[in-house]
Computed example of a mutant assay.
Amino acid sequence: MDSIKLKNIRVYAFHGCLVEESKIGSDYIVNLEVKADLSHASKSDSLHDTVDYVQLQTIVKDEMATRSKLLEHVARRIMTSVLQKIERVSEVKVSVAKVNPPIGGDVAEVSVSMKMKR
């Protein structure tokens, strides 16, 4: 199975359990990988025959704009949306990282990674 990856999508969003996080927001980095059969697209050279990475980016941005308490919830929404909107995708992997999380220590980021199959 072939794959398309979007690496280090930067988004500013308002996820988290703390009230401050809902008001101040934070930087996030999302990595997305989808599995699909890309053999036809490799021959046809047509956008219609592949997974449009612009659409993938839009899904990530839209789901990141909806507030959640947990990164796991955001990741699941992204995966579900990809599978619902892009029939060609058979599997999706996503990691969502909060940069400089407010956890009382010197931590560059905290992230969750999840995978979902059709």
Rank of each mutant, 00 (worst) to 15 (best):
L6H: 05
I59F: 12
S111G: 13
K43E: 11
A13M: 08
G105S: 15
D27C: 09
Y28H: 08
P101L: 03
T50E: 06
V99R: 11
F14D: 11
K117C: 12
R88W: 02
E72S: 01
K69E: 11
L38W: 06
K61E: 10
K5R: 06
K69Y: 07
M116Y: 07
V92A: 13
S22K: 12
G16D: 10
G105M: 05
D37M: 01
F14I: 05
R88H: 14
R118H: 14
V107A: 05
P102Q: 02
D49L: 04
D2W: 07
R77G: 08
K7S: 10
I29F: 04
L56R: 06
V34T: 10
L56W: 03
A65F: 12
L70G: 11
V89D: 05
K117M: 13
V11E: 08
V99K: 15
M114L: 11
V51R: 06
H15E: 06
S81W: 00
E91R: 15
V99A: 02
R76P: 01
S42W: 04
D45W: 09
E33K: 13
S26I: 00
V110E: 03
E87A: 09
K85S: 12
R88P: 01
M64R: 11
Q57G: 10
V74P: 00
G25I: 06
G104W: 10
E91I: 12
K61G: 03
R118K: 15
S113R: 13
